[in-house]
Simulated scan of single mutants.
Amino acid sequence: MKPLVQVAGHACPLGLASVDTDQLIPARFMKRPRSEGYGGFLLHDLRRDEAGAEKPDFPLNQVPWRDAPILVARRNFGSGSSREAAVYALADHGIRVVVAPTFGDIFASNAVKNGLLPAVIGEAEAEELLAVLTARPDCLMLVDLEACTLSWDNRAVPFRIDPVWRGQLLNGWDDIDVTRSFSADITRFKAATGQARPWIWPADA
């Protein structure tokens, strides 16, 4: 997994609350192999009309937000089912950070495991940010995971993330890598336990 330290660029204001995983990627598209990419199906039924044409007023269909690496939404983002494909759709579209006041628990965990940062900010800050981005589409943002801040213009807002998840993203670690990071502690524990309770280890063949 690629480490995530800073992400800079445009931020798309998605002024919706309780965007669920079925909205992020409708189930009918999950029959396709991941190798084909899920980015084109992100928020499909919100972004497109019944004929499949893009809705011009939807933020992700507009320049400069079409290729924005940062998405800003309202509370309860990623609620609903546990489908990891919702994160695949965001990641394959090129989004590396989602900013919201709250996230679905399973979605947030899946996001970190796929190198996507779920940055938690207060509701007042989210509303401020959505207003700024809507009024000024060219506004650029810097997301700094080391400092845990979102910055634009002369404004900086702190965000929250679980410290273990932060370490995983900064280092590009999956769950196995996290365990390996404690290898020295594990070795010391094994040696001490072997001396104190040698009977717990299997006898040599």
Results as ranks from 00 to 15, higher is better:
residue 35 S to A: 15
residue 24 L to W: 00
residue 28 R to Q: 13
residue 194 G to Y: 02
residue 145 L to V: 15
residue 93 H to T: 04
residue 4 L to M: 14
residue 173 W to S: 07
residue 164 V to S: 00
residue 132 V to W: 08
residue 122 G to I: 06
residue 191 A to K: 12
residue 87 V to Q: 02
residue 204 D to T: 14
residue 145 L to N: 01
residue 158 P to G: 08
residue 31 K to E: 10
residue 189 F to T: 07
residue 31 K to G: 14
residue 22 D to E: 03
residue 44 H to I: 00
residue 166 R to T: 05
residue 175 D to Q: 15
residue 178 V to G: 04
residue 52 G to N: 09
residue 66 R to H: 05
residue 73 A to L: 07
residue 57 D to I: 11
residue 80 G to L: 09
residue 18 S to W: 01
residue 75 R to D: 12
residue 143 V to K: 02
residue 15 G to T: 03
residue 19 V to I: 15
residue 41 F to I: 02
residue 159 F to R: 02
residue 92 D to P: 08
residue 109 S to R: 11
residue 91 A to R: 15
residue 58 F to L: 05
residue 172 G to V: 04
residue 86 A to F: 06
residue 51 A to R: 14
residue 167 G to K: 12
residue 17 A to V: 06
residue 164 V to Q: 13
residue 197 R to D: 06
residue 32 R to N: 10
residue 112 V to I: 14
residue 38 Y to M: 14
residue 69 P to E: 09
residue 4 L to D: 01
residue 3 P to R: 12
residue 107 F to E: 03
residue 169 L to H: 03
residue 59 P to A: 10
residue 21 T to I: 07
residue 201 W to R: 12
residue 91 A to E: 04
residue 79 S to M: 10
residue 184 A to I: 07
residue 36 E to V: 01
residue 204 D to C: 03
residue 24 L to V: 13
residue 85 A to Y: 00
residue 30 M to E: 10
residue 113 K to M: 13
residue 159 F to C: 05
residue 75 R to H: 12
residue 168 Q to W: 01
residue 158 P to H: 10
